[in-house]
Design a protein around this nucleic acid. Sequence first.
DNA 1: TAGATTGTTAATCGATTAACAATC
DNA 2: TAGATTGTTAATCGATTAACAATC
Lengths: 209, 209
Amino acid sequence: MKDRQISKAVIRRLPRYRRYLKELQKKGIEKISSKDLSKQIGYTASQIRQDLNNFGGFGQQGYGYSVSNLHDEIGSILGLDREYKMAIVGYGRLGQAIASYISNNEPNFHIVGIFDVKQIIQDVEFKDAQIMTCGSLRDFVRNEKVDIAVITVPTAKAQIVADTVVDAGIKGIWNLTAVDLDLPEGIAVENVHMSDSLHALVYYMQGEQ
Amino acid sequence: MKDRQISKAVIRRLPRYRRYLKELQKKGIEKISSKDLSKQIGYTASQIRQDLNNFGGFGQQGYGYSVSNLHDEIGSILGLDREYKMAIVGYGRLGQAIASYISNNEPNFHIVGIFDVKQIIQDVEFKDAQIMTCGSLRDFVRNEKVDIAVITVPTAKAQIVADTVVDAGIKGIWNLTAVDLDLPEGIAVENVHMSDSLHALVYYMQGEQ
DNA sequence: TAGATTGTTAATCGATTAACAATC
DNA sequence: TAGATTGTTAATCGATTAACAATC
């Protein structure tokens, strides 16, 4: 990996590359050229090669890229060759959907704790994760050394949850609420702002009548 | 609105501007300068003025922008001053979460139909939306003139659902599955690729130890 | 009026594309 | 070897930032 800071645009494309490579792998395709990948993924061949060469030469002149090798290399660049402990904060339908998605599709992410305010679901269990009230969030994150907090609480509670997990030493926050969080330097955050996405959608629906 | 094509980057910022303006409005703040908004939203003042001037001069020299006026203007640019009929396809936990979010927070979006393969939930109702099996999706979309299809079905079913609603004359697709859809020109699509977001998150967690 | 702040042009910066030598 | 395709440099394009005249 080179010294120069990799641009955000490149990083956002990496999971997509990996996703397409996984598809190719499933289809039993063993090698792919930047030109052929370009046709499928929609980026130019030039951009694909440029993107990949930020991290090293994964291809072979005259041949192309090994699908499974490139898939794994990108995974490794992203950090998907490590294991992560996750806590889900907010166990409404969105939290439940996420929990189920993670446990079925993301082998390197382990849901170790689930938190909600509601008593009703408090004693239920999800796989090997306890379901607890938010009062124990801070200590749990600290003691279990949770890496990632998934925040799916109502908008008004999002910042206080973020403050709590930050205080407990969280490393990353996956924010699925409709607010932007105020966080100290050094805490990674990714926002999934669904309503922003919906609003962009309707913009693009204009003119199509 | 000027002729020149507005860049995608600008459009993606608009919902965020609107979100911050709504917040200011709630706080009773009536005017804001690009400089002050910059401090809150994190874009440069220059960029804010540049973005807004793609669509017209909404400010007043020496004063700034009227919060409520700018909020509404951005809404109008995005197309949020119109009404939209929505069908939710896939009524698992994610579909349920979306349905609830939309009906509580998006007054201009109306869920008119919900579709799932499962019999169990088939006779339940959500507000004024019927819950139906996927077999009736095509006719429903066509007859009710549904504007937007929200796709939350399992990955393997996403493309066939998309094909069905496109055939029935849908105008926009809000895709919450983990695949990219193959769609004809003229159909607007927005993808919420949650796993891509999670994978970007872990990239940014590196180096923080 | 004077001060503030926009609207807009020009300068800079960064990202994408094109081109091609290196090499498998 | 010849053909194919990468890795990488250079050219282009577009987006962001800076600057300032217009004007409220």
